[in-house]
């Protein structure tokens, strides 16, 4: 009987191992229910094996951009492939999302050169390829053209399909983007031209902040940008607020609104100057611009400071306890000294 049980256990273990081996031999199942994209890189790709297009293109030619889209889920999906321009988000990052942001300095853009959006329906576990065509201008272009193939899932989310609720609702939408970088001349280095376009006091509902609109007039992206901002009183030159932000990047021919807070000092209404020092690699820039704070704006700022000052009773208790302990130690030491003498 014991021997029989032993054989049964042995058999069960072996069966499990063999079943495991069989699955091991098969390709792994995608754990995601979302779609995925993969670029089919052409021969003129400059970085082999990258998951985005980085291409040397010939003036006057037509460049095919082919993307494989896979639906690993068990439901039909509709996705839309849209060409988008690279822009700079206000966070100082290069964004490849549909946007109306354009800078007039751009000679041409990726969306102007590329065929229109395509909508594709994917059956469960189906893969399809989509090709968009980019027409390179006959005279080529300076620097780089940067954009992306933005693939958005148009299938309504499940909770949205079923919901009749009257509550406030945020529908999640999912998108994957494959960046596209095009260059006619890969050795061309263009001197970066940055400008401070304007400084505005942001009409926040609660706390006023500044925004500095910075423009990159060069058809080349750049990174490792550090911005040191100082707010000074115009009359006295006294610095009332400072802020440092680093690891920023900008898309070619783009702009962004860099947010600057007004610091932690109480302010008076009047004239101020924003001073900006920017660095990236060996380059540096200095910009200054005046701005004015109204009575209402400084009132909002000063009220926010009072709210932000945390009540820290533990700090006071810590100070009292520390002083008491020090006094006790001192008294003990004095007492011992007197006793010895």
């Amino acid at each position: 009987m014991i021997r029989h049980q032993y054989y049964c256990r042995y058999l069960l273990t072996l069966v499990l191992c063999l079943v495991g081996l069989n699955f091991w031999g098969l390709p792994s199942q995608a754990t995601s229910k979302n779609f995925s994209t993969q670029p089919q890189l052409p021969k003129n790709q400059l970085i082999p094996g990258a998951s985005y297009y980085n291409l040397k293109v010939i003036p006057g030619s037509e460049q095919s951009l082919t993307l494989s889209i896979t639906n690993p889920s068990d439901q039909t999906k509709t996705v839309k492939v849209t060409p988008v321009n690279a822009t700079t988000a206000d966070s100082g990052t290069i964004a490849y999302v549909p946007s109306n942001r354009q800078d007039e300095s751009a000679e041409t853009t990726f969306t102007k050169m590329t065929s229109v959006a395509v909508t594709v329906q994917l059956a469960p576990r189906q893969q399809k390829t989509v090709t968009l065509k980019t027409k390179i201008p006959a005279n080529g272009f300076q620097g780089e053209i940067r954009g992306g193939l933005f693939v958005a899932d148009l299938t309504p989310s499940q909770s949205n399909q079923q919901s009749n609720s009257t509550q406030f609702h945020l529908n999640n939408r999912f998108a994957e983007v494959t960046p596209v970088i095009l260059r006619c001349n890969i050795d061309q280095k263009l001197r970066t031209n940055l400008k401070l376009a304007q400084v505005t006091v942001n009409p926040q509902p609660t706390v006023p902040t500044l925004t500095a609109k910075l423009r990159n007039l060069t058809p080349a992206a750049f990174g490792q940008l550090k911005i040191q901002a100082k707010v000074a009183e115009k009359a006295t030159g006294k610095i009332v607020a400072t802020q440092t932000t680093d690891q920023l990047a900008m898309a070619p021919n783009s702009w962004f609104n860099h947010p600057i807070t007004l610091g932690k000092q109480t302010l008076a209404a009047g004239h101020y100057i924003l001073k900006l020092d920017l660095t990236s690699g060996k380059r540096d820039w200095h910009f200054e611009a005046p701005f004015q704070l109204s009575k209402q704006q400084v009132k909002q700022h000063n009220i926010s400071l009072k709210k932000a000052t945390p009540a820290r009773p533990w700090g006071r208790w810590l100070l009292i306890s520390g002083t008491t302990v020090s006094l006790l130690i001192g008294a003990y030491w004095l007492g011992r000294r007197q006793a010895h003498s």
Binding site: L170, N171, A175, L194, G281
Partner: peptide, 22 residues
Amino acid sequence: AGTYTADLKWTLAPITKVDTAQ
């Protein structure tokens, strides 16, 4: 008064190599 909705778009993108300013 009423039911309000908005789309929240999540975008996933590979990082591209970017040089410092020239």
